[in-house]
Structure formats: C-alpha cells, structure tokens
Amino acid sequence: MRLIEDYNLIRGRIFDIQRYSIHDGPGIRTIVFLKGCVLRCRWCCNPESQEYDIQTVNANGKTRIYGEDVTVAQVMETVMRDADYYRRSGGGLTLSGGESLLQPEFAKGLLMAAKDYGIGTALESMACVDYEVIASVLPYLDTYLMDIKHMNPQKHKAFTGRTNELMLENARKVAQSGQTNLIIRTPVIPTFNDTVEEIRAIAEFADKLPNVTRLHLLPYHRLGQDKYQWLGRKYEMGEILPPDQEKMEMLKKTVESVSGLDCRIGG
C-alpha cells in the first residue's frame, strides 16, 4: 500500500501555478508549471520556463524571480484549494512546463497525490524523454495533452532545437498503451507550420494513432513577448501576426477532411 508520506516531501522546481484554467483539459483546472525544457521553440510564450536555473529579472522596474523549489505537499495545498471546483466540473491538476517530465519523480509525485485526493490529472508535454519516464507516470494520468508541432524532422529542429523522431515514437507508444486519454495539440505558428500541407501531415499522423480521437489547433499568440525583454532575450518571432479566425477555420477543415478526428480551435 502507498503511503501519502512517500511523495509528500519530494521537491521540484516550478515557476507558476495558475488556477481556474479552463482551456487545458476537462473541467476547471489548476496548472502547475514545472521549470526547465528540452526544446527552445521560437514562439514559446513562457520563455522563463526553458532554463532550469532560477532566474531573477527586472520587469518594468520590479524585481521578479522565476523559479521556486517546493515540495509536492506545498503544491498540493494550493491545488486542493479549488477541490470543490474540480469535483463539480470534472477538472483537476494539469502539469505543464517547460517539460515537466524532466523532473520525473516530482511530476509523478504530484500526479500520485492528485489521484489520492481523488481529482483528475492531466499533463501537457512534448514527450521528449525516454519512454520509461513516460511509462512511470501513465498509471496516474487521466489525460495526456501531447504537442506535435511538425512532421518534418529538419524543420522541427530549425524552430525548436530538436528533431521530432523521439516524440513521434513516444506518441505511438503512449497511444498503444491505452492507459491514458491522449489528445494531440498543435500550436499553429505562422512561418512554421500554418500551411494546409503541414497541418494535414500532422492530422494524418494523429489519425493513425490508436485510441486518439481529438486534435486541438492552438493559434499562435504573442502574449509572452514582454518576458523576452525582461530576460534580456530577443523575440525572434518579431512582428509576425497571429493567424486570423478564417485561417484557423480553414485549417480545422483540413484536419477534418483527412481524418476522423474531432478537431477544435483552442484547448
């Protein structure tokens, strides 16, 4: 039998907790953002998530610290303040990042704790880790929101810093495991993957994955732009505008025309 104490004291590094999240998984949720990422996506709206190190920045004259080391118990204390909302809505805890699986023990501890408290669990992740790590959290995971950004390994590498083979392979394995509800998410980024051909390729791949029925198209937004400046980094997307509604609808139709997937714009 598992004792709650087993995971309560596991420590990990987070950079934010966001309550009343309604676009990332079922119901009303709390997202815990774990710090550190393997990718360096150019459009990333949370650039402070990428480095594992704790960062201190000057945000419009105010000092801001990105990163805090906390225990599973501390995180769950905040998460469970909205327990009533999860029960009403079928929501719960969502882990996001960065790539939360880079802190596998901590991530697993949080998911186990959530399960013990009886709330739902979800994970937003690129699956860019060894499959054993993923396999270790699957028993505690209700929903896996997995990013598939591009089918071409070279273009993937050019825009994110890594090729996509490992992620695609993991996507297949997670889907085959049947242990979690896998949802594929694709950020739609102008200049990167916003053509009919590119989205179609992703849809065709996702459609072949067993047990996968849903694909979310997430329109690019620039709301993280200021943080690049605070971090002393250049925002490489420059003045690229978000895709308009018409374009998103068109891409949604593309997905629907080549797959049986239930496609949604936004989470």
Partner: peptide
Amino acid sequence: RVAGYSALFTGLSKSLQDDIIS
C-alpha cells in the same frame, strides 16, 4: 485571460492589446 494566459490589460503593448480585442 486569454487561452489560459492572464495579463494586466493596460500593461500590454498596443499591438498585444489589439490581439486581445480581436
């Protein structure tokens, strides 16, 4: 709050505000 991303509206630059308005 847009797509799970919340921000102080008046602290955003004009072009980001325009995004939110659209």
